[in-house]
Design a binder for these strands. Structure first.
Length: 558
DNA sequence: AGAAACTTCCCACACTCTAT
DNA sequence: ATAGAGTGTGGGAAGTTTCT
């Protein structure tokens, strides 16, 4: 909580300092002065329904937040010049606002159009530009260096081997890395898809080389237009002395700092620079809203082509971008879709199942937040609030404390609470339709597929410590029988006129009537209620004993 | 030729849907 | 019930494009 407040305070302070690149360009893509995102909202939400109206409200508020935060790169396909309030296209390292802007960049307040970075390798420098984040680019450099070493079989002195990569390899060798083995390990980890381990290993390398290799940002650009020319300038005139004075370079040169360096001659660059990549511009803000609408990647792609007229976008590019910018589909849904669902959940008259159906497409992202939520593995604000009340926990309790109680609360499956599912199991409600039956199945009632039903059943069975549905069913039905007998042996039935009436059970017929009216046995006589009770539910207890043990009336003395 | 960023291809895995 | 087709994921490596 404190950490969060600190970040917010930092943001406030910085904006007072005047770093606020408000370029007058809308964050939403416009075509003929119309913001296309509204067309999409109309397309995917039924605005005549309550849920559609409320979803629109929540999305509008999300849009306002995104507009205010300006956290992502602007969509600038026409390469318009973007300037801030002080008329700058970029903030160089010696600008008074640079350090403030850098702090904001590090906490992800603004996504710039690109940046110029320098890498200090034991007092030798490399300068480059990138439209990505610096961490990503730096990691690429390290892997490239290792790959180059591996491919040339360690011959880093061969002509043409990049000076920069050679320097990186030398540092790694000096601190004891076997580079062939290191590269092999990284390749193996990715081949085995052990990405977490791979990331950890790479971070470890980055940590170990920190005293010798340090990347730093030296200029922040609002757009990518001037990146090339600025890179050329810096490679030719690397301002060594001022960079040191600004604290960006810490290497000790015994106080002999040349004012400027030519990095091609006295550094690690091999070209004069100025080459920009072919960064594919995408309307990230609109994409965020598409995620909030619950669209899967292929659907987004279709809309980008149809509505936004972005012709060449490939699905892999889109997904790479979502991963790079939003940190993956899971996080993206958590950031953009979850708040919409939380708003809907707080509105009376909207059921969780309705919410589920409205955003069902989002489920196609099997590793997304919505998918987990559909199986009750993710929680909403209201769930946590319920826990506070139910278990009398302080609202300032830590997450670890709250977590202990999560398992004890009711889970929802496709928005339907677990107790409802259990009721369906007890009453033998048909889960999916079969030919020749005119009973409406759960799958039909909930508008979900058979396999989804199967998976839900599997999960509920497992959560309740059972191995099969029938095992769980017996357990639940036994509890039900005990409950009925304990509380007066009265059950609700629907009589011939379709009216709900109560009937009292007797010792002689309780098993018959329970099987017929509570368990809804289709052919209840053939099913043999006596055997069912005695063998399946109360393993070995005879009917007499069941009645006598659990009923609170007319107890026989045995 | 070199740099940056994009595309293609790959894999393992998970789920849905349809047909049998 | 189950097999198979289809869809989707992340995220790497290798190859390609685009630019200077």
């Amino acid at each position: 909580m404190n950490e969060r407040n600190n970040i917010i305070n930092k943001e406030k302070k910085a904006s007072i300092n005047g770093i606020n690149p408000d370029q007058g360009i809308s964050v939403w893509f416009k075509s003929e002065k119309k913001e296309l995102i509204h067309e999409l909202i109309k397309k995917y939400l039924n605005l005549d329904s309550l849920i559609g109206k409320e979803a629109k409200k929540a999305i509008s508020s999300l849009m306002k937040q995104l507009e205010q935060k300006k956290q992502y790169r602007l969509y600038n396909p026409e390469e318009k010049i973007i300037i801030d309030q002080k008329g700058r296209e970029y903030i160089p390292f010696n600008d008074p606002d640079f350090h403030g802007a850098l702090k904001l960049y590090n906490i992800g307040k603004y996504e710039y159009g690109g940046l110029i970075y320098a890498v200090d390798v034991q007092g030798l420098f490399y300068c480059g530009l990138t439209e990505k984040r610096i961490e990503k680019r730096f990691e690429e450099h390290i892997i490239n260096a290792l790959r180059g070493y591996y491919k040339s079989n360690g011959d880093i002195n061969q002509p043409g081997y990049h000076k920069f990569y050679e320097a990186i390899c030398n540092v790694l060798l000096n601190i004891g890395y076997d580079l062939i083995e290191t590269y092999k390990k990284i390749s193996t980890l990715s081949a085995l898809q052990r990405y977490n381990e791979r990331r950890k290993f790479l971070h470890q390398i980055e940590h170990n080389i920190k005293p010798y290799i340090r990347p730093c940002i030296i200029e922040l650009h609002y757009s990518s237009i001037k990146l090339g020319s600025r890179e050329i300038y810096y490679i030719k005139n690397f301002p060594l002395k001022s960079l040191f004075e600004q604290g960006l370079i810490i290497k000790d040169f015994n106080n002999e700092y040349p004012e400027y360096l030519d990095l091609r001659k006295k550094g690690l660059n091999t070209t004069s620079g100025g080459q920009t990549g072919t960064n594919f511009p995408l309307p990230l803000y609109d994409i965020a809203i598409m995620i909030a609408l619950g669209l899967s990647a292929p659907k987004m792609l279709k809309d980008l082509k149809e509505f936004y007229n972005i012709k060449d976008v490939k699905i892999r590019t889109l997904r790479h971008k979502i991963t790079e910018i939003f940190g993956g589909s899971y996080k993206a849904q958590e950031m953009f879709l979850k708040p919409i669902i939380e708003h809907l959940d707080s509105i009376e008259g909207i059921s969780r199942h309705e919410i589920y159906l409205t955003f069902k497409d989002a489920e196609l992202l099997n590793d997304g937040w919505f998918y987990e939520w559909s199986y009750g593995e993710e929680y909403l604000k209201t769930d946590i609030e319920k826990i506070y009340k139910l278990f009398n926990i302080d609202t300032r309790a830590s997450w670890e404390e709250i977590m202990q109680y999560l398992d004890k609360t009711e889970k929802n499956f496709v928005g339907i609470p677990e107790y409802q599912w259990k009721e369906w199991f007890i009453s033998n409600k048909m889960l999916r339709s079969y030919s020749g039956s005119n009973q409406k199945s759960i799958a039909e009632i909930l508008s979900i597929g058979k396999t989804k039903i199967q998976t839900i059943v599997k999960r509920i069975v497992k959560n309740n410590g059972c191995n099969s549905l029938s095992e769980l069913k017996y357990k639940l039905q036994r509890q039900k029988v005990i409950e009925i007998l304990k509380f007066g042996a009265i059950i609700d039935i629907i009589d011939e006129n379709g009216r709900l009436t109560k009937i009292e059970l007797e010792k002689e017929d309780f098993h018959l009537l329970i099987c017929k009216h509570v368990f809804n046995f289709d052919n209840w006589k053939a099913a043999n209620p006596k055997n069912y009770m005695v063998n399946n539910l109360f393993s070995g207890m005879n009917l007499n004993k069941i009645w006598n043990t659990f009923s609170n009336k007319f107890q026989d003395l045995e």
